[in-house]
Amino acid sequence: MSATIETPRSGRIAPQYRRSKGNGGSFEMIAWLFMRLSGIVLVVLIFGHLFVNLMVGQGIHAIDFGFVAGKWASPFWQVWDLAMLWLAMLHGSNGVRTIINDYAERNATRMWLKGILYAAAAVIVILGTLVIFTFNPCPVVNGVPLPGGFCPAP
């Protein structure tokens, strides 16, 4: 194990790649703390998610529309999945942000990559939140329930 990997942004940096110092704000410290706090919560949320969805009963074979309908009929799993969505996306996006900052040397490259990252993260978080709160176990189109839905007995 003699190979070593240079610490990102630690070597001699060509003048065109020098960056201005941060503004001295506490954002990076708060982000660092958020990674640790959200990490602990995510271990519980994701291990619980994997256990309930993959380990119990028929495992992955049980997952279909009805499985999701059954879970989201309960506010407990709605809150669980919402917390998991937000914490995992913020945790993951901040991790990828760190990696972009470490390895993209040109200012424009960093700006573009982070712009794409933030746009993708916003779309996924908003979409996922809407899906959890607008989920309908019995979707109806033109007065006809769609096949596979869970509708109350007439």
């Binding site: 899906v131 309908n136 769609l146 596979g148």
Partner: peptide, 8 residues
């Protein structure tokens, strides 16, 4: 799941 049960 918001598209249709069958698609999901």
């Amino acid at each position: 799941v918001r598209v249709s049960p069958e698609v999901y």
